[in-house]
Simulated scan of single mutants.
Amino acid sequence: MESQVKKLAVEIDKANTIAVLTGAGVSTASGIPDFRSANGIWREDQSREYYMSRAYFQRNPEDFWMKYKEIFRLKLLKNYAPNHVHLFLREMEQKGKQVSIVTQNVDGLHTAAGNQHVIEYHGNLNTATCPACGTQYPLEHVMTEQVPHCIQAGCGDILKPDIVLFGDPITKHAEAEAALQQADLLLVMGTSLLVSPFNLLPVYAWSGRKLSGLINREPTPMDDQFDFVIHADLGKTIEELKQEE
């Protein structure tokens, strides 16, 4: 029987427009921890969801920033680089395919890899914005002081990071659905599909009868929404897909 990898490789080759949903499993080969896997950081201390919330930021922004920088290891962020999974998606673009990436990851590595259409569903660690005046600052400014402030004249407000905190609205869902609607093929990589509303996107694709494939080390609650399901190491599977080209 022809393997799921071979079948998926054929569909990737045939597709002109591909939507890709990615999660933490895509970035682990770059040295970035998987926060939600069985051994992920979030499971070490469930209170981190409380601390990484809009409510806690508003209540105690100074302590929020101390915990935020520790949890997301901001000092190490610039040491991370795209890995061969990110580069595989860029190579699809270089072959003339239209690729839209909808990512849960906040590390910015898809953009760093060179992909042109990246929807950062949960925001990005690389910037922070002043809630008072709307001025956006790069990571370099965020790291200049323990609690970063706006330096615009007459402002001085504490900055808010440009990631989606618990309690924040998701503003990219409609854009993500539009990318899926236009695609010939949906690929889902390295995500457990446990977080809502992100995990509604494969359902949306399924309802539109989009051909779809899932690559994840562990089973997900939504495996039955996919035409091709591969439970294996993502990096090794990507290498197998490339060999099938």
Score class of each variant (00 low, 15 high):
residue 5 V to I: 14
residue 81 A to R: 15
residue 100 S to C: 12
residue 199 N to C: 14
residue 195 V to L: 11
residue 55 A to N: 15
residue 11 E to T: 07
residue 237 T to L: 03
residue 18 I to H: 02
residue 243 Q to F: 05
residue 220 T to P: 05
residue 54 R to T: 11
residue 75 K to Q: 13
residue 135 T to P: 01
residue 104 Q to M: 09
residue 135 T to C: 13
residue 137 Y to D: 09
residue 13 D to R: 15
residue 33 P to K: 09
residue 48 R to L: 15
residue 241 L to C: 03
residue 8 L to A: 00
residue 203 V to G: 13
residue 140 E to I: 04
residue 206 W to H: 15
residue 19 A to K: 07
residue 45 D to L: 07
residue 165 L to P: 06
residue 171 T to S: 14
residue 14 K to N: 14
residue 81 A to D: 10
residue 240 E to V: 00
residue 56 Y to N: 00
residue 197 P to H: 06
residue 228 F to G: 01
residue 3 S to R: 05
residue 221 P to Q: 09
residue 232 A to E: 04
residue 101 I to C: 02
residue 153 A to R: 09
residue 51 Y to G: 03
residue 200 L to V: 01
residue 150 C to E: 07
residue 138 P to Y: 10
residue 241 L to D: 02
residue 192 S to C: 08
residue 70 E to D: 13
residue 145 E to L: 08
residue 88 F to C: 00
residue 238 I to E: 00
residue 120 E to M: 10
residue 220 T to D: 09
residue 103 T to F: 00
residue 154 G to C: 02
residue 223 D to G: 06
residue 192 S to M: 01
residue 189 M to H: 11
residue 202 P to N: 08
residue 90 R to C: 03
residue 188 V to T: 15
residue 1 M to N: 11
residue 182 Q to I: 08
residue 150 C to D: 04
residue 173 H to L: 15
residue 99 V to H: 08
residue 75 K to T: 11
residue 95 K to N: 13
residue 55 A to Y: 15
residue 164 V to G: 03
residue 222 M to L: 15
residue 15 A to Q: 07
residue 80 Y to C: 05
residue 86 H to M: 07
residue 4 Q to D: 12
residue 185 L to M: 04
residue 234 L to N: 05
residue 60 N to Q: 13
residue 127 T to S: 15
residue 46 Q to C: 10
residue 66 M to V: 12
residue 109 L to D: 02
residue 97 K to Q: 03
residue 187 L to C: 02
residue 116 Q to E: 14
residue 141 H to A: 07
residue 37 S to M: 11
residue 28 T to A: 05
residue 182 Q to V: 02
residue 133 C to L: 08
residue 54 R to Q: 14
residue 117 H to Q: 13
residue 212 S to W: 06
residue 179 A to G: 10
residue 18 I to M: 04
residue 85 V to E: 13
residue 12 I to C: 07
residue 13 D to H: 15
residue 101 I to D: 01
residue 156 G to A: 10
residue 156 G to D: 01
residue 145 E to V: 02
residue 52 M to G: 05
residue 24 A to N: 12
residue 218 E to L: 11
residue 90 R to T: 11
residue 139 L to I: 10
residue 42 W to L: 05
residue 39 N to R: 13
residue 82 P to F: 12
residue 241 L to N: 01
residue 61 P to T: 01
residue 148 P to E: 11
residue 67 K to Q: 15
